[in-house]
Amino acid sequence: MATTKADPDTGMAPRELKPGQRTRVWVASLDSDTPELVHETSDILLEAPNWSPDGGSLLLNGDGRLWRLDLGTEAARPVEIPLDGVPAINNDHVLSPDGEYVYLSGMDGHLYRAPRTGGPGVRLTGDDGTLHFLHGISPDGTTLAYVEIPRGVDGAPGRLALMPADGGSGRVLDTGDGHIDGPEYSPDGRWIVFNSEAFTTAPGHAQLVRLPAEGGPVERLVTSGTVDWFPHLSPDGRFATYVAFPAGTLGHPEDLDVAVHVVATDDWSTPLRTYPLFGGQGTLNVNSWAPDSRRFAFVSYPLDGR
C-alpha cells in the first residue's frame, strides 16, 4: 500500500509496518481472560480503534486515512471512509456523543470534523502557533479536549486545552509542570482524565490523573512503577483501560513490550485484567470501549521472531 508523504510543515508522517511485522486488532471482554483476534494484516499499520455507536464496527486510522472494520464477519477487511478536504490524519480521533461526526487530528497539526460515514471535512483550529492533538469531547458534544504544543519548539511539554467543538480559540487549563497527554472527559462530564509527568522527578514517568472539567487541582489516580498512558473510561464510568510502558520509557514509543490494563474506577491500583503485548504507540491512543461498557478494542504489532 502506498505511503502518504510527511506533512511539509510538521514533518509528521503515518507509521508503517516493518518487514516481518503485522497489525493485530483485538477485542477483549470483561467476562473473559482471553481477547478475540478480529483482524490481522501485514498490508497496513492500523491504529487506535474507536467503537461505532451501534457496536457493529471499529474505526481505525492507517496510512493517514480513516478505515471502518466491521465486526462479526470472519473475512471482514478494513473499508476506507472517504474524508474530503482533510489531510493525512494521525491516531488521535474521537466520535461525537451522537455518533454523527468524527473529530480528527491532521498531520498538519490542526483539528478537523467530518461525517462519521464519510464526506466533506472542516478545519476547526486556527493558525495560533501551536500543534493540536485531539483526545476527548464533552458528553454534551460542545467542547473538545486536546493537547497543545508550540510549533517549532523542540521538547516543549504538552498542555491541556479546551475549545468549542464547532471551532474557535482554545483555553489552557493549569495542570502544573510536566508534559500531559490523552485528556478525556468522564461520562458525567465532571472530570478530565489524562496522564501527567508532574508527579515524579524521573524523566518521562507519566502517571494517571484527573482534574475538574472546569479547572482545579490535579488528583493522582494511581501510583505505579510503570509509565502509564492514555486512560479511557467506559461509557458507564465504572471501568477504565490504559497502557503501561516499562519504567524509564520516554514518551509513548512504538515496538515495546507493554501491557493493557483494565481497572475498576473505584480502585485504579488493582487491575481486573492485564493483556501483555508488543506495541505501544497505536495500541490504545483513543477511547475504544464498546457502547455496552463490557468490551474494548486494542492493537498489537508483533514482529517475526517475537
Rank of each mutant, 00 (worst) to 15 (best):
R159A: 13
L162H: 15
H179M: 09
P187M: 03
G176N: 01
G178F: 12
D166M: 11
A161K: 02
E184P: 15
H179W: 12
D188M: 03
A165Q: 09
D177R: 13
I192L: 14
Y185F: 15
G167Y: 07
S169Q: 15
G170A: 09
D181G: 13
S169G: 14
G176C: 04
V172G: 00
D181K: 10
L160D: 08
P157H: 02
D177N: 07
S186K: 00
G158K: 01
G176T: 04
D166P: 11
G158N: 01
P187H: 03
G189N: 01
W191P: 10
A165R: 11
P157Y: 01
G168M: 10
R171A: 11
G178I: 08
V172R: 02
I180L: 14
P183T: 01
D174E: 09
I192G: 13
Y185E: 10
G167E: 07
W191H: 12
D174I: 04
R190E: 15
S186M: 02
D177V: 14
D166N: 13
V172P: 02
D181T: 13
P164L: 00
I192V: 15
P183Y: 01
V172W: 02
V172K: 00
V172L: 00
P183E: 04
V193W: 13
A165M: 05
G170Y: 02
R190A: 15
P183K: 09
L162A: 04
D177G: 10
D174A: 10
E184W: 11
G158V: 06
G176A: 01
G168T: 11
P157C: 01
G178A: 05
S186P: 00
T175M: 07
W191K: 11
L173Q: 05
Y185V: 10
S169D: 15
G176Y: 00
R171W: 07
G176H: 01
D188R: 03
G170Q: 09
D177M: 14
L173F: 02
P183H: 04
Y185W: 14
M163L: 11
P157M: 06
D174K: 08
G170V: 00
Y185R: 11
I180Y: 13
G168L: 06
P157G: 08
G189E: 07
I180G: 14
H179R: 05
P164A: 00
G158Q: 03
G182M: 12
G167L: 08
G178H: 04
R171F: 13
I192T: 10
G178P: 00
H179P: 02
L160H: 11
M163V: 03
M163C: 06
R171D: 09
W191C: 12
A165W: 03
D174L: 08
A161T: 12
T175W: 06
G182T: 14
A161E: 12
H179T: 06
D188N: 10
Y185L: 07
W191V: 13
I180W: 12
V193T: 14
L173N: 09
A165G: 03
E184F: 09
P164Q: 00
S186F: 01
D166Y: 08
D181P: 07
V172S: 03
P183I: 04
W191R: 12
M163H: 03
A161Y: 04
P187S: 04
L160P: 10
E184I: 10
W191M: 14
D166W: 11
M163D: 04
M163P: 08
P157F: 06
R171H: 10
R159P: 08
G158H: 03
G176S: 02
L173A: 09
H179Q: 07
A165L: 02
